[in-house]
């Protein structure tokens, strides 16, 4: 009996290029490098600032937030504005969609308003895939976080930051600490690091916050933070949600900090030039000590600027691929038409 091990990759077009960005799983190194390189070109090397460019003028992007998130929404909006796109942001509470109008009706309604791209944040894993399967062929879907599944742009910006600070990701040892199980960011980070062939990916946390089969994700598991931090180049902290205490996965914030909190003493176990990252917002004194968060090895604030550039890159690459595909198809059609008319001429003779 044939086991269908890989799902068809609906995020790539006929030319094997990015059509939607739903997850990093299944993408090749070249896809990621193209995004990271393009992101680089949006940043002015002198000022480290991001200039506005007229690239997506006339394109309409809709940010659909089925799960509220001011921070992610804002970075997407800034990125879209810097690309000169027309943008519309909608907070859609799931309760409203459950009241009669189905999720798809909502989507099709918005699609009818001439959208070229949907940026979607949703509380359900797989929601971005679902939307991508049901939008019109010319509409693109960008996953801004779906349930516990994926948050590809966040992971890409982390890769961008690592590359900026450490050069090639190949050959780096990276430790991710905290709530691995419930984090879509971590899932995407792990995929990005594997695609970019990081030398070793470690996850550190209590068993209750790790998935049942961490090995399936291609990582090494450590339950002891001191052991896991030995010799790493990059330390990624994960935000601890309050709900984890409520569902008895860990005893208390205090105990978590005692066992897994990143302190200066613990950070000293990593390589001396190791960097510390955190997708924010930070729980000081829960997962990370203030001295570390504000310390010399922390790159937490720089991540924010890079997030804009990376999102600009993803959006312009997706639109660019669509343009190239359309052009190629038009040329193909023209060739076929010419061949046909030649054949007709032949026939007439």
């Amino acid at each position: 009996m044939k086991a269908r091990l890989t799902a068809p990759n609906i995020q790539l077009n006929e030319q094997g290029k990015l059509k939607h960005l739903l997850t990093l799983e299944g993408l090749k190194q070249q896809h990621l490098l193209e995004i990271l390189d393009t992101a680089e070109s949006f940043i002015d090397p002198n000022s480290n600032k991001i200039k506005k460019v007229p690239l997506l003028r006339g394109k309409s992007i809709m940010n659909l937030f089925f799960e509220p998130s001011t921070r992610t929404r804002t970075t997407f909006e800034i990125a879209e504005k810097r690309l000169s796109a027309d943008i519309e942001s909608l907070d859609i509470q799931t309760s409203a969609t459950k009241k009669g109008e189905s999720l798809l009706d909502t989507l099709w309604n918005l699609q009818a308003m001439q959208a070229d791209m949907f940026v979607i944040r949703h509380a359900e894993s797989g929601a971005a895939h679902f939307f991508a399967q049901h939008v019109a062929p010319h509409v693109h879907v960008l996953n801004a976080g779906d349930g516990q599944h994926a948050h590809p742009t966040q992971a890409l910006l982390d890769m961008f930051t690592i590359r900026k600070k450490k050069g090639d990701i190949f050959d780096l040892k990276v430790a991710i600490i905290g709530d691995i199980l419930h984090s879509r960011v971590v899932r995407s980070q792990i995929q990005a690091l594997s695609i970019l062939e990081a030398r070793e990916i470690r996850v550190i946390g209590p068993k209750t916050l790790l998935p049942e089969n961490p090995e399936a994700l291609g990582v090494h598991v450590y339950h002891d933070i001191e052991e896991g931090l030995q010799d790493v180049d990059v330390v990624i902290m994960v935000r601890l949600q309050n709900e984890r205490m409520k569902s008895a996965l860990i005893p208390s914030e205090k105990e978590f900090f005692k066992r897994y909190g990143l302190t200066e003493k613990r950070l000293a176990l990593a390589k001396p030039d190791a960097i510390v990252m955190h997708p924010g917002p930070i729980n000081r004194g829960v997962e990370i000590d203030s001295a570390v968060a504000d310390g010399a090895q922390s790159v937490i604030l720089e991540q924010v600027t890079y997030g804009i550039a990376v999102r600009m890159a993803v959006m312009s690459i997706i639109m660019s691929n669509a343009a190239q595909l359309a052009q190629q198809q038009a040329e193909q059609q023209e060739r076929e038409f010419n061949l046909e008319s030649e054949a007709e001429v032949e026939g007439a003779r």
């Binding site: 070109s41 940043i43 002198n46 690239l55 639109m319």
Partner: peptide, 25 residues
Amino acid sequence: IDISFYRDDFSKIGLNPTIKPSHIP
């Protein structure tokens, strides 16, 4: 300057793959 981001034929030919940041010091 790299004018790739300012081209008016983006919707026809897409993004130049070798794009680099403009540099006006």
